[in-house]
Design a binder for these strands. Sequence first.
DNA 1: GCCAACGTTGGC
DNA 2: GCCAACGTTGGC
Length: 150
Amino acid sequence: MANWLVKTEPDAYSLADLKREGTTRWDGIRNYQARNFMRDDMQVGDRVFIYHSSCKVPAVVGIAEVVKAAYPDPAQFDVSSKYFDEKATEDKPRWVCVDIAYRSTLTKPVTLKQIKADEAITELALKKSGRLSVMPVTDADWQQIISLAQ
DNA sequence: GCCAACGTTGGC
DNA sequence: GCCAACGTTGGC
């Protein structure tokens, strides 16, 4: 069982949207490293931190759970989608998505500022490479973020 | 809205 | 297969 962190821009899709819908397709990931994590390592039952990016206070805001493992992202075949990829075919899909379900909203959001300042959080990719949109979270870092949310 | 950092593309 | 140019992300 693994832990993850996924980014979303709340203007486009927020934790509140996920809460309202219950379950959603986490699609539109167009970064190879992020895709590989989803395709190779993400499993049903894994816990997922939802992180709000490109907003006033970037922060981890809630928790979701993987309810369907990686499958081809339908948007890559859809010419009308902004995620359309002409190099992807049904035989050889390039991108994958997963389904995730809402679990909870943190009592207090844990801000990027807090995370960066916290020396107990050691591995989290968010601290360094700012651009990865799906990243693994160690058990220790997961626990530390949970404790900051109390 | 700016700009640094980083990923991707494409010419050689 | 290298690397410069370009595009995108995302914090500030």
